[in-house]
Design a protein around this nucleic acid. Structure first.
Length: 500
RNA sequence: GGCGGCGUAGCCAAGAGGACCAAGGCGACGGUUUGCAAAACCGUUAUUCGCGGGUUCGAAUCCCGCCGCCGCCUCCA
């Protein structure tokens, strides 16, 4: 099996072969840190974190870079509006972003370079492009001349002359071509000193695209494997990165371009600059969502579809996904009752494979192993996490069925239990690739000890009532607990309770 | 106007020429189990893949033409 990835550049699925065998460099455009991140910003990190996990599973050594753009027009405007420093604002929003990443179990980022820390490199790249006659200086601004790049437009598959010119006048008279873009912007007198950097062209700051070219080159080299980001970045951002990097180095910039679909809300793309959307942004800000929903649920929600598709965000859909996740948590709880540990260790399914002796055991092992193959085939097919999560559900059903038919709760033999535990391990090994079920379920906050003791008493009293067939009483207890948000389950090995 | 994406059951979502009279999840409805529930399991819920043509022995999958939704072309993950 070989991994195939959809490359925006060629618009085809291609077999993945890294530039250097065994190693993968991956760069993903991160946030401009001027306002708190919303759910749409989580999609990229979650999917690329999963991609990194899968590449590591396939034994690649992966270096993942996510940039932080901390010098930019919007930051300056927002800092002014808030009456704080640009740097102060950037740091605050960055911390907020990283907290959300942690909750989403995005753990794979190796480098988080900030544009403000690469000013020297940015200036050097500008100089190099000017030397190569691919850039020109006008009144302290430096522009890239797109006619210097014969391939310009190859990523977004568009020709500059076919484009409708923007409604906004971008001081176009300074530029030779309307599509030329700023590599360096001269400082304006009213801007704060902290965003004025010295350069050969006078004080100023980097244009929007160049920091990615410089930082990716510094950390991953002139050519690297995967460049990712949201679909909305294809043009002009990524197109311009390619133009300046390839013109500067005369080398391929990134081999594979992966773009995730955009998140919608009421069928429209989530955007901070959309007025209607801005009104409801509180519902979409990651910090708020994470107070309402576990990070694992948001991650699962994002991964339950193929990353190139748009995702429609809604509370209803999240509630449905949450029900789905519960099936996994219940299986782990069931395992815990059987083995004392939801994530019980022991021999793996591969080790037990040869020793399964009865037909049901053999069929069970076979089924789980086949599902593992399907999971990996799905992941090999352009990281089809939607299909992969489907096989995980099928695994849950297979394991539950095996537990049922082998009567594991009312005795059952030890080797059947061992097989069930090994199957749960297999399930978790795969889920780990998706960044799921790595930790003990946290779906309900730990109730205090008193609650536990009271529930124990309640359950014992109800058991007595049931023993003497006083069902009216036992049902009353159950109904009233249900009304209080506690569900009882009478199982062969005793009654358990849970919230919700 | 140019470029790109999407349209599969009530909802979400895999499948991208034959193993598909289309995975899986949520929901709904039956059944097993249970004192009754809950949970779990089993079954039913798309003879059909936006619409119309075409290519092919064969199409949800390829081609052409429509229709609808969305994105980019201006800051955006």
């Amino acid at each position: 099996m070989s991994l195939k990835v959809f490359n925006t550049l060629t618009q085809k699925k291609e077999i993945f072969e890294p530039v250097t065998p065994g190693k993968v460099g991956m760069y993903v455009c991160g946030p401009t840190v001027y306002k708190p991140s919303h759910i749409g910003h989580a999609v990229g990190p979650v999917i690329f974190d999963t991609i990194k996990r899968y590449l590591q599973y396939k034994d690649y050594q992966v270096t993942w870079v996510v940039n932080i753009t901390d010098v930019e027009d919007k930051l300056i405007a927002e800092a002014k509006a808030q009456g704080c420093g640009v740097k102060d604002l950037a740091e605050r929003i960055t911390v907020n972003y990283l907290e959300a990443m942690k909750e989403l179990n995005v753990t794979g980022i190796d480098h988080l370079p900030k544009a403000s820390e690469y000013i020297d490199g940015i200036i050097r790249m500008c100089e190099r492009l000017i030397e190569k006659n691919a850039a020109y200086v006008v009144n302290g601004d430096v522009y890239f001349d797109i006619t210097a790049d014969a391939d310009y437009g190859k990523l977004s598959h568009r020709k500059a002359e076919d484009q409708q010119s923007g409604t906004r006048d971008l001081a176009g008279e300074e530029k030779r071509n309307p599509n030329d873009f700023a590599l360096w912007k001269a400082a304006k007198p009213e801007e704060p000193d902290e965003v004025k950097f010295d350069s050969p062209w006078g004080p100023g700051r980097p244009g929007w695209h160049i920091e990615c070219s410089v930082m990716s080159c510094a950390l991953l080299g002139e050519t690297f494997d995967i460049h990712g980001g949201g679909m909305d970045l294809i043009f002009p951002h990524h197109e311009n990165e390619i133009a300046q990097s390839e013109t500067c180095h005369d080398k391929t910039f990134a081999k594979y371009w992966l773009h995730n679909g955009l998140t919608r809300f009421n069928t429209k793309k989530i955007s901070k600059s959309d007025a209607e959307m801005a009104k409801r942004m509180n519902e979409l800000v990651l910090g708020n969502l994470l107070k309402k929903y576990p990070g694992e649920l948001l991650r699962f929600f994002i991964l339950s579809t193929q990353y190139r598709r748009p995702i429609e965000f809604s509370d209803e859909e999240l509630a449905a996904k949450s029900k789905g996740l519960d099936a996994f948590y219940r299986l782990f709880e069931r395992m815990e009752r059987l083995a004392g540990d939801p994530y019980a260790g022991g021999p793996t399914l591969d080790e037990l494979h040869a020793t399964a002796d009865t037909d049901p055991e053999k069929a069970f092992v076979r089924e789980v192993l086949d599902l593992r193959v399907r999971f990996l085939e799905d992941m090999d097919d352009d990281f089809n996490t939607g299909g992969a999560t489907g096989t995980l559900f099928e695994m849950v059903t297979a394991i539950n069925r095996f537990m049922d038919t082998q009567n594991l709760e009312s005795g059952g033999d030890d080797r059947a239990k061992q097989l069930a535990a090994a199957a749960v391990q297999t399930l978790r090994d795969l889920a780990r690739i998706l960044g799921l079920f790595e930790y003990r379920p946290r779906r309900e906050e730990t109730p205090d000890r008193l609650a536990h003791e009271l529930m124990d008493i309640m359950i014992r009293v109800r058991a007595e009532a049931r023993k003497s067939k006083q069902y009216a009483l036992s049902d009353m207890i159950r109904d009233q607990l249900a009304a209080a948000g506690v569900t009882l389950e009478d199982r062969p090995d005793g009654t358990i309770w849970r919230r919700g």
